[in-house]
């Protein structure tokens, strides 16, 4: 999919520059863009590494496990096919906790394990059961205590307060999560 998007972006910019007579700008932007991308990665590195480092301390202090234990009974209420002490639900809450703490590298393996465990007792076989859908919908709400990438991008763009959007992001993520759960429920009730 990303391949098509990239292809379209390149083709559209060429056609657009032809029509607007901005071919010179376009030609310059190809080199500038690639050059800029590298300095962007470098200027993001400090903020990104600070947070992956801090969250590693949190992880080794046992915060992840503790949060995960608190989460699993809550999660099993919206994912009733699995009990809160089942291996599936343990993997689900480990994944969601890792996402909340911004431990992206740890989150994906837990998420894949969660899908594997849930699939074992999935009676629909080739289709996901309601809990599996709920898991993916919850995952796409992107709950995260510190949205590191956004803060790093804002810092790189010269923001005077890169973290000022934290409350906004919490508010929006939480309400989007609630909306996602309600919307998924509505689809489930309709069959």
């Amino acid at each position: 999919m990303i391949g098509y998007v990239w292809f379209l972006m390149v083709i559209i910019s060429f056609i657009c520059a032809l029509c607007t007579g901005k071919m010179e700008n376009l030609s310059k932007s190809v080199l500038d863009g690639a050059d800029h991308a590298v300095s962007l990665v470098i200027s993001m590195a400090g903020v990104m590494c600070l947070w992956t480092g801090m969250m590693k301390i949190a992880d080794r202090s046992g915060i992840t496990e503790k949060m995960s234990k608190i989460m699993s009974p809550l999660l099993s209420r919206v994912m009733p096919e699995y009990r809160s002490d089942s291996p599936a639900m343990k993997a689900v809450s480990a994944n969601i906790t890792a996402n909340i703490l911004g431990l992206g590298n740890a989150a994906t393996p837990f998420g894949l394990a969660a899908m594997r465990e849930m699939q074992k007792t999935n009676q629909l076989g080739s289709q996901p059961n309601n809990s599996m859908i709920m898991f993916v919908v919850i995952n796409t709400a992107s709950l995260q205590i510190i949205p590191t990438t956004i803060a790093a991008l804002r810092q790189a763009a010269g923001s005077i307060s890169p973290y000022s959007i934290l409350p906004h992001i919490w508010f929006t993520s939480l309400l989007t999560l609630a909306a996602g759960i309600v919307i998924a429920r509505i689809f489930m009730l309709r069959g």
Partner: peptide, 22 residues
């Protein structure tokens, strides 16, 4: 960050091309 860099380079370039083309 290093493993994300190649796709960022490709996409930042594409976005800056779109921007420059108007």
């Amino acid at each position: 960050l290093i493993s994300a860099a190649p796709s960022l380079i490709g996409l930042v370039t594409a976005v800056s091309m779109l921007e420059a083309s108007g």
